[in-house]
Nucleic acid binder design. Structure first.
Length: 643
DNA sequence: TTTAGGG
DNA sequence: CCCTAAA
């Protein structure tokens, strides 16, 4: 059985200037690299990367050069999406509401309107005391928020967000471009947040999420989750129409639930929402994932209803002082300006820039991933099919991609053309602007977890379905949404290639084998760039979590009762010899947790409950073998015994 | 490679 | 689950 499908990826919005102009050398340094943890994150990486590239180019002419000197004056950035009719509704952030280092993410839903969401990011750096000090000094930890407005264009159905942060602000904040790969690069950003706690609260209609100051990662991560799954990873085919009608939060929640039968939601997200404190394990797990998601979100949220907007704002609307960029926050139409008082972005889509000096703003509604060629036994389970598809997608996305730019169906190959020359700066043509993700012919897909992937050609991935999925291992997040393949066929060409942004520079970046992800650097004032594809990194994938089933526990207990607690290799061979994903270390760890579980009250236990009798056996066996171990130790080293 | 433990 | 020092 062969499947050949195209998957739609993401929803990315970006704004790019018609001409690149920011020297990388001027960017800040990057943070130490970290490993990637979930292979399923690759798509995110990819998207984040692409978005990052695009975003990198979005600095407005006016902001680029002043960035350096102004950097210290800006301490926070705030993005807001204003509700169409009631902007005040989304005005939950104000300077006083956020402590230093706070991170605010929120989603605003429009019940009636289709969807709009926004991510408000607020950050401040304690180390930056300069210009910011003036305002923040008195309030101590309060951060000076740059009010950025985002006006969601509700005309369209697409879920979208206009990312209207003032380019200037971004610059000032120092956008760090990092490899999505290495969570590391994210460090500046992430660490910053992790240093603070964040609360996660749902507002009123439940469609609004606020992540404020706190162990960010969790909360923000959750938030990002939606970004990732709903806008990036989730294939369009799931039903764009349906999606559009959902509020952002509902959307991602539903999305998560849909995928893997809600496993992610139930096991990861929901619990997280319920409890602010996650086990270290979970935190770690989510951390890296969310970091990436967070990055992606930063950029992807700029996507709007597939719209593209740009407009000049009268200087009178802008009050620009040397240190702060200000604009009327009450105005539903965001007006951002740079130090020169020039408006850098707004929401009116009617106007467009024709001049090469003006930035071209666009949003990428979605990316079409390269065609996948999958071969899987007819008797394979749906679950395995899902995994297979996911693996294929992951392999493709992580294997190196290029971005192709299509204008009115024609591929723009000349990377050196300016957007103006290519006709991309013309608003009218933007509707016909599209982006595609293409396998990078120069890069073979990286080794993957599943040995089932076999790159066939630059455009195809031949996937051999893994044998029968092991029943003990529940499918997890590596699976794509259930309806992925089913609906993919429907994905209309338009939705895939429609609006997007043009950027001849994108290709160049990929040519350089560098992928960038924009993040708001906490400390560095400059932009940092980190190569995405660390040859090695892609290989380092954190294993997926596979909770032990009761039967597995039973087998483990039985084996340990027989062999003892110090012979994990034997236990493995005895009881889990055929279960490849359970290593002796896993068994040892599981035993450890079992012992712990058996010692705590039932109320404190989480996850699938383990029969008490089993736990009793665990305790007795553990006690017995510890005693045996002690005895043998005593015999071996009698002199070490206490008198 | 295995164990043993901390993270 | 990950990471690692030790064995």
């Amino acid at each position: 059985m062969v499947f050949q499908k195209r998957l739609d990826v993401g929803f990315i919005g970006c704004q790019i200037p018609t001409m690149p102009r920011f020297p990388r050398s001027a960017r800040g340094k990057r943070s130490p690299p970290k490993k990637v943890e979930n292979n399923q994150m690759h798509p995110f990486d990819l998207l984040a990367t692409v978005a990052g590239e695009l975003l990198e180019k979005r600095e407005s002419p006016c902001s680029l050069y002043e960035t350096a000197e102004r950097t210290n004056h800006v301490n926070s950035i705030k993005q807001k999406q204003l509700d169409n009719g009631s902007p005040s509704k989304s005005d939950i952030f104000d300077q006083g509401s956020c402590d230093e280092g706070s991170f605010v993410a929120r989603f605003v839903s429009h019940e009636e309107r289709r969807a709009a969401s926004a991510l408000a990011l607020v950050k401040s750096d304690a180390s930056e005391k300069d210009g910011f000090a003036g305002k923040s000094a008195q309030s101590g930890l309060k951060c000076d928020l740059q009010k950025l407005k985002i006006t969601g264009s509700l005309k369209n159905d697409a879920i979208g967000i206009h990312n209207l942060e003032d380019p200037m602000d971004l610059d000032s904040k120092a956008i760090a471009l990092v490899s999505s790969d290495s969570s590391v690069e994210l460090t500046p950003f992430v660490d910053y947040h992790s240093a603070h706690s964040s609360s996660f609260q749902s507002v009123k209609d439940g469609a609004e999420l606020v992540v404020d100051k706190d162990d960010d990662e969790n909360s923000s991560g959750r938030t990002h989750n939606c970004a990732i799954y709903s806008k990036a990873l989730k294939p369009h085919c799931t039903g764009e129409r349906r999606v559009r009608k959902m509020t952002t939060s509902n959307y991602w929640k539903a999305d998560l639930e849909a995928m893997n039968d809600g496993e992610i939601w139930n096991r990861e997200i929901k619990p997280a929402l319920r409890s602010r404190k996650l086990s270290y394990t979970r935190q770690r797990t989510q951390r890296s994932s969310f970091k990436r998601k967070k990055l992606l979100e930063r950029v992807s949220f700029s996507a709007s209803n597939g719209g593209f907007c740009s407009q000049d704002v009268p200087d009178s609307l802008v009050k620009c002082d040397k240190c702060d960029t200000k604009f009327d926050s009450s105005d539903p139409h965001a007006h951002l300006n740079d130090a020169h008082g020039r408006s850098c972005s707004t929401t009116d889509q009617r106007l467009s820039y024709e001049s090469a000096d003006h930035p071209v703003k666009l949003s990428i509604k979605s990316f079409r991933v390269p065609e996948l060629f999958i071969e899987i036994p007819a008797n394979a389970t749906v679950g395995s099919l899902k995994r297979t598809v996911m693996e294929a997608v992951t392999a493709v996305l992580s294997g190196g991609l290029r971005v192709g730019v299509l204008l009115q169906g024609k591929k723009i190959r000349d990377d050196n053309k300016t957007l103006v020359q290519a006709g991309i700066s013309n608003t009218d043509k933007l509707d016909n602007l599209g982006f595609t993700l293409e396998p990078n012919p120069n890069r073979a897909p990286p080794p993957h977890n599943s040995n089932s992937l076999v790159p066939e050609s630059p455009n195809k991935i031949l996937t051999h379905a893994a044998p029968a999925p092991d029943q003990a291992a529940p499918d997890t997040i590596t699976q794509p949404p259930p309806n992925t393949t089913a609906n993919c066929t429907e994905s209309d060409h338009d939705s895939v290639h429609s609006h997007t942004n043009p950027s001849s520079s994108v290709d160049q970046m990929y040519d350089n084998s560098k992928a960038l992800v924009p993040i708001l650097a906490v400390k560095s004032d400059a932009l940092s760039v980190i190569p995405l594809r660390n040859s090695r990194r892609s290989e380092m994938v954190r294993r997926i979590r596979r909770p032990f089933s009761v039967s597995e526990v039973e087998a483990l207990v039985q084996a340990v009762e027989k062999l003892g607690t110090g012979r994990w290799r034997d236990v493995k061979l005895r009881a889990f010899d055929s279960v490849k994903h359970r290593t002796y270390v896993d068994l040892k760890d599981k035993w450890k947790t079992l012992v712990h579980t058996a010692r705590i009250s039932p109320q404190q236990r989480r996850g699938e409950p383990v029969p008490q009798d089993l736990l009793d056996r665990v305790l007795s066996a553990h006690a017995y073998w510890c005693q045996q171990q002690a005895k043998s130790t005593r015999l071996a080293e009698p002199f070490l015994l206490p008198a």
